[in-house]
């Protein structure tokens, strides 16, 4: 089975959801032209990233009645979509969220579980922490979504893997930092390294879509990637500029890789659980 996966590394207008929605619809049309089955947008793609006091004013609910999600849900009849947005729950807690839309329905919403609140980041000040990590079924098999800092920690991809995800969809708004004498920024090298490592260790497809553009002095570096279950880079978007990167994934590669390298079969989850229980129950 083939999956035409598209990654839209877009720039956004900070706090201008209408303008960002327009851009989404534009890229959806472009992806359709290129016969994409699934199109992934970056973290907070509808809103921009350093929202601070804008959070409450840009929140939307992923429902048919919502003016922003209505056209996106409609578009999801043609191709599946991963949308980055601010989700507001019924008790007015705000989350950094990704929604997976397909066939006019919301298949899954992930709330970011790790909110970086250190260095240049201040997410914990403005957002509520997500508290679940779940895989979900799609028409291409079981998938999982994580947002930026979620996959800087090893446990969320691991949990998705055990929960059945063969396709990991990572989205980011990762500011470039760490310029030295090398050709790539430290932040880009780090994310590329771990994306490749997860694909290799979990013998899964790992796609990463990072935004571009500036917010004040922060430059988001783009560089979308797709790695296959062998940990091989299948496609890569450019750095620093908007682009639509389309990769044809041969989903049968999962079977071939896992026949050769049965890491999933041999994963000793009961042992992990036993040792975790022991470690976490220490006083």
């Amino acid at each position: 089975m083939k999956l035409n996966l598209a990654l839209a590394q877009i720039s956004t207008k900070l706090g201008d959801v209408e303008a960002n929605l327009e851009k989404h619809l534009h890229y959806i049309e472009e992806a359709k032209k290129q016969k994409a089955d699934l199109l992934v947008f970056p973290e907070l793609s509808l809103t921009g990233y350093v929202l601070q006091d804008l959070v409450a004013s840009v929140a939307h609910k992923p429902i048919e009645d919502d003016a922003v999600f209505k056209p996106l849900l409609k578009a999801s009849h043609d191709l599946d979509l991963v949308i980055g947005f601010v989700d507001e729950d019924s008790r007015h807690r705000f989350y950094i969220a990704s929604a997976y839309l397909s066939g006019g329905k919301v298949l899954h919403v992930h709330h970011k579980v790790y909110l970086p609140t250190y260095g240049l980041f201040d997410e914990g000040r403005f957002f509520a922490w997500g508290d679940s990590i779940r895989s979900f079924d799609t028409r291409f098999g079981r998938a999982g979504m994580l947002i930026c800092e979620d996959f800087w920690h090893a446990s969320p991809p691991y949990l998705l893997w055990l929960d059945g995800a063969d396709l990991m969809l990572f989205s980011s708004a990762s500011p470039g930092r760490g310029l030295n004498d090398r050709e790539k920024l430290e932040s880009a090298r780090w994310v590329e390294r771990v994306s490749k490592a997860y694909a290799s260790m979990f013998t899964s497809f790992v796609a990463h879509c990072n935004r571009v553009g500036f917010e004040d002095g922060l430059l988001f570096w783009g560089g979308a990637t797709v790695n296959d279950p062998n940990g091989e880079l299948v496609a890569q978007g450019p750095y620093f500029e908007e682009a639509l990167t389309v990769a044809e994934l041969d989903l049968n590669q999962l079977r071939r890789t896992r026949a050769r390298l049965p890491l999933l079969r041999d994963e000793r989850t009961a042992l992990v659980q036993k040792e975790l229980n022991r470690i976490l129950s220490r006083g």
């Binding site: 207008k13 900070l14 706090g15 201008d16 350093v50 601070q52 006091d53 804008l54 500036f214 917010e215 004040d216």
Partner: peptide, 11 residues
Amino acid sequence: YDFLYLRDWGT
């Protein structure tokens, strides 16, 4: 202190 927006607000 607690009126926090980037300069690029809305752009």
